[in-house]
Write a protein that binds this DNA or RNA. Structure first.
Lengths: 203, 203
DNA sequence: GAGGTACGGTAATGGTCGTTACCGGATTTG
DNA sequence: CAAATCCGGTAACGACCATTACCGTACCTC
């Protein structure tokens, strides 16, 4: 799909400018002229490299998804279950609440109706990898008896939701800025505690 | 804010057509002409009633948010904690995975950058009411010793995330259609079980 | 050093769309 | 019944914008 193209500075500048604008203002509100004003170069270059505005947008989404989510987040060697979950929750929150990642998600949601395959490939290249990994982690933990038997995929989805909690919902709506490290740690720890032990008093 | 206007069939027809189009195709991709084609009437009526395309959009979002989320979902008299949570989870999933609600959310997210106050009022009039109610329920349960002491707001956010889990994320991206009643029950029950007791074996 | 190619800048084209103006008929009002 | 108001339909206006064409220059090749 992506040829191992030699690094092209014009292409990189376009991508960077396009990311700034598309992620901040959305697809429709971003004009080709605005991208050129920011990146320099000329429109011919965009059409030579990407064919159309939509082509640029799709390339942008795909490459950013891979770059953001590909960063070796998922699948390190396993520590204890609890430590693994804590690690994952922290990294997940860092990633998901990052301004760029939020912008990417917002614009993919906004265009999901018009470009369903793009939304699907975003999910597959991005969030689904984390989900699949956690499902595996949980499945192995269940086999070892460290957690109750469960449907690993359902449980993984629960854990993701628990970590994102309502904070992510607010962030996506633009109601909260990015989280501090302390907030991230607090939410991640609370999520792992609840996921493993629940809120009901033991014993 | 909203005068108790007498029911105006032209206004209602416009609202309904606008909802179909805005929620399905988004703000920019919906033209005034398309709304008129579907609703009948003339553009003059839109500009007389709403002033502009954006005015129509804002009225649409506000009224639909109130209508969808106002439906006495939150705050019924309390059963047992567990039954209350199960009820709430089921209703929340029914509401959030409903096609209309998803469309509303998508378009609010898409325009959140351009219309931040609209996104804020959507959250306040809608999801926040459920969150505040659950926080109260949890606070009382903690006072009774039925659950561990907790920060009620944090715990409420966790519960919401746990119920939405990853399924909602997928639905918002358009990757899944609405859920069947059986799926809703399954996910809601699993969420309550995990929230109360966690995944770790007891004893 | 000559010829050609690549590229940035700018203008032109064609279409869409929000908004406003105009027209004719229907309905209401005195 | 006459006058005025309302409203649907259509056209006009102006702006924006994706896309393409054109032009001049700089660099690269031979």
């Amino acid at each position: 799909m992506t040829e191992p193209s030699p690094p092209d500075p014009r292409r990189a500048a376009l991508m960077s400018a396009a990311a700034d604008l598309f992620f901040e203002r959305g697809y429709a509100a971003t004009s080709i002229d605005a991208i050129i004003d920011r990146a320099g170069g000329s429109k011919r270059t965009i059409y030579a490299l990407f064919g159309s505005k939509e082509g640029l947008f799709e390339a942008l989404v795909r490459e950013n998804t891979e770059r953001m989510f590909g960063a070796a987040l998922f699948g390190g060697e396993e520590l204890s279950l609890e430590a693994t979950l804590r690690d994952f929750a922290t990294h997940l929150l860092e990633l998901f609440t990052n301004e760029r990642t939020v912008g990417l998600y917002q614009v993919v949601v906004a265009e999901a109706g018009r470009l369903p395959e793009l939304a699907a490939s975003f999910y597959r290249l991005g969030p689904e990898r984390g989900r699949a990994w956690i499902a595996q982690v949980l499945e192995r933990a269940a086999a070892r008896g460290e957690i109750l038997p469960c449907e690993p995929d359902l449980a993984a989805g629960q854990f993701l939701g628990l970590v994102r909690s309502d904070v992510y919902y607010e962030i996506v709506l633009g109601l909260r800025g990015p989280l501090s490290d302390a907030e991230i740690r607090h939410i991640a720890d609370a999520a792992v505690d609840t996921f493993l032990d629940g809120m009901r008093p033991r014993g």
